[in-house]
Nucleic acid binder design. Sequence first.
DNA 1: CTCCGGTCCT
DNA 2: AGGACCGGAG
Length: 223
Amino acid sequence: MIRPRGLTSEKVVIFKRKLLSWGGENFSVLPWRNRNRSFHSLIVELLLQRTKAEQVVPAYLQLKHRFPSSKALATASLEDIEKLIYSLGLKWRAGHILKLGQKIYYEYGGVPPLNREELMKLPGVGPYAAGAYLSLHSDIRAIIPDANMVRILGRVFGFTCYAETRKDKAFLKLCDRITPKRKFKEFNYAVLDFGRKVCTPTTPKHKVCPIKNICYYFMKNYQ
DNA sequence: CTCCGGTCCT
DNA sequence: AGGACCGGAG
């Protein structure tokens, strides 16, 4: 159970505002960052699991070209998919991608479902992929309780993160409170970019951090 | 050489 | 709840 420190509505408001503003100025353009409710938008979230965005770009473009429709993917061979994502490592994901393509084509007519529970029943789709598909590609508000969110909130609100923190009810509640009601998409993109560029796992870039003055971790270690 | 990261299967 | 998975960055 996490115990956030200094969790006041003022700090929450400042956090949202600063992150949104930072995100607006530092948005990374990536080929899958669109609002298409397409199976490509869901597949790419599997490629992004435990994998850096830059690394995914070529594999994603090739995969999209090779399998332009869910039908093409559903009828593909496992070897074809393995070959395309080989450079990303973790090649067991090829199996998930094939099964996912088949389910989407045969059971959903080519379009992924639009609620969290249904999405998470799909192969390879967990809390991260479901939240990303809904909020980033479908304009449906959802939290993305991934490593970035855990790390950033953990630092700002001074709680220690463990492997199970992502499933912690108090943490999920905090994610829900922090994620804006309206600009959730902009916010989620901001968190992803911020976690990658500023609030990095090791040696966070305090010098360019716009929220260090409300960050428990920074205040404690550098003030 | 060590750390990092989502989901599934035991 | 704990391990397996794999390549890249620090």
